[in-house]
Write a protein that binds this DNA or RNA. Structure first.
Lengths: 334, 334
DNA sequence: GTGAAAGCGCTAACAC
DNA sequence: GTGTTAGCGCTTTCAC
């Protein structure tokens, strides 16, 4: 089935050059005769021809493949991001390969090596730590664009959301609605977008003249459902009742927290105010008042992809792009 | 940076064979001298070596890459499936490339060609229609495993859930709880897993001696949020009130329907019984009584992957695997 | 308008 | 224990 250029040339008594010229659409440019063109087209119509990218890639030392390395696809923010990025890449003739680290630095490094040896033309990475990021930058012979978390290196291109500002606005809105008691469950501060969100939270509380009570700000572990469960369970051990406002630094953490709450109470108390980041279609169906700071996936994808293309083309001034988030409120007027 | 085997061999005054033997861990097998091994290992430790997969793939006519073609990643069922499949593939030494069709048959066919020319060793596909499936099978020179939808060809391996049975059980449970009025929003019957679900629904209604009222069973369009909105809006135009039980054939349809309901009423009436397929962590937090027939992603992935490996190894008896679903109920005891 | 040939980096078969 | 070599399918340069 899969004929090669040479086979076609032999079968048709032509040279590979001639065949390639028409296969690549340069027939008219090099004035290949109509007859020859027709013979070739007829042949491929009948026998089919698929370009062998391995050979092309070997010769040209580029693969038209880009890699995306993220924590998990089951985080709706990342699955949306992956979807959009794949589309954008495809439209520009690139194939995207998406891989998940499951928050495992070891796996993250393996993935980078693996994709590199697969000859990707560039990598988008949401790195687990400064250390892994440095590892990647040292290893990579191709452009790397860091997304989602800014570890403050300026020798690499970074695209992130304006986490601190968004967190501040989010918190301010929630305080305005009900300042009585807050609980903020966050992942580890070592993850810069988290620490930024915590910073924004602190700013807002300070501006409002509110103290952050002991045991009302958790910042440990990763961005997983399990960790959300753990932190919420711990809070409920120490406290008799729920806070009036619950904030989480990510959707998985919120899921975990709500898991524990709904198990404890049998349902989610509708008067619990909820604040979080990113969104999922289901979120707005909760009876609660919900604020969420939504990252602009489209803008992030666009910015990151442009940075990538520029880097591939050698305009490798590193880019530091901070994309504004949007504050959304869901209210059920029951 | 990226040294080739030949460069290493030259620099060390060895032959490529010798270098390869130790690089591939066959040193002891061929009794390469300790000294030579050390020299090579030291060299690569210092200069690094990354296998060039393009060259390997060209030579061996295999890439250790598998392709997954699905409608969308933003459907939580598929993002979970993709996550699991990627893990399984990686553990077996395969790289997975996941692509989305956005329910566009044209794009689906392009994707197949594109992945084929990237020399994937096999394809997992959830095809849009019989036609596209036939197209793929004709084109593909590598194994194809069909997932999620069974168009009834027995010359291809298929792994699907037991949609009809699960739908029947689901409906029966919902009838038992409240038989008063049903609305079932489904995608197009041309999609076999949907038609199976409708069949199960019909069976259950018949067994319970219930008639399916005119305008209470929608089966048109695709499996998208937008389509769910459209169908629900249409229903509310024709009917003054909500049904007592709402079923949808997929999560995106449910999201769409709930969108319309929450816009119309300002909230989701808690006494609306909901039945659907697949699940999302957020689902259980709705105040409603919810039944869902959950597909067993792990079992599906395992079965599909095994079928793939068998096919790659030439044991190409086609497999027809039907994986049982699990019925889950979420109840808020408010 | 068309053709010939080198070479990308790897593997496998065969030498010695 | 180690070395030589052909060739996978493509692109590019040069030739006629």
């Amino acid at each position: 089935m899969a004929k090669t250029v040479e086979e076609i040339a032999n079968d048709l008594n032509l040279s590979v050059t001639t065949v390639r010229l028409v296969l690549n659409g340069n027939a008219s440019k090099y004035r290949i005769s109509q007859n020859t063109q027709k013979r070739i087209n007829d042949y491929t119509a009948q026998h089919g021809y698929v370009l062998n990218y391995a050979a092309r890639s070997l010769k040209l030392n580029k693969s038209d493949v880009l890699g995306l390395i993220i924590p998990r696809l089951s985080n709706p923010y990342f699955s949306l991001l992956a979807e959009r990025l794949e589309l954008t890449c495809r439209e520009a003739g690139y194939q995207l390969i998406t891989c998940c680290t499951y928050n495992d630095p070891q796996r993250e490094m393996q993935l980078v090596s693996s994709l590199l040896s697969r000859n990707v033309d560039g990598l988008f990475i949401a790195p687990a730590s400064v250390k892994t990021q440095e590892h990647h930058l040292k290893l990579a012979t191709k452009p790397v664009i860091i997304i989602d978390r800014d570890f403050g290196h300026d020798d690499v291109s970074v695209v992130v959301s304006d986490n601190a500002l968004a967190a501040e606005k989010l918190t301010t809105e929630m305080i305005r609605h009900d300042p009585s008691s807050f609980l903020f469950l966050a992942g580890s501060e070592k993850q810069p977008s988290i620490s930024e969100r915590i910073r924004g939270y602190r700013n807002a509380m300070a501006s409002a003249g509110l103290k952050i009570k002991r045991g009302s700000l958790y910042k440990e572990g990763d961005d997983s459902t399990e960790n959300g469960q753990k932190m919420m369970a711990h809070y409920l051990e120490k406290n008799d009742q729920l806070p009036s406002s619950l904030m989480t630094s990510s959707l998985p953490l919120l899921e975990g927290a709500l898991n524990v709450i709904s198990e404890r109470y049998g349902y989610i108390p509708a008067d619990l105010n909820i604040g979080t980041f990113d969104t999922h279609p289901m979120l707005r169906f909760l009876p609660n008042r919900i604020w969420t700071a939504r990252q602009d996936e489209d803008a992030i994808v666009l910015s990151a992809f442009r940075a990538m293309i520029d880097a591939i083309n050698g305009q490798s001034d590193t880019v530091h792009n901070i994309v504004p988030m949007q504050l959304i409120q869901y209210v059920a007027n029951s």
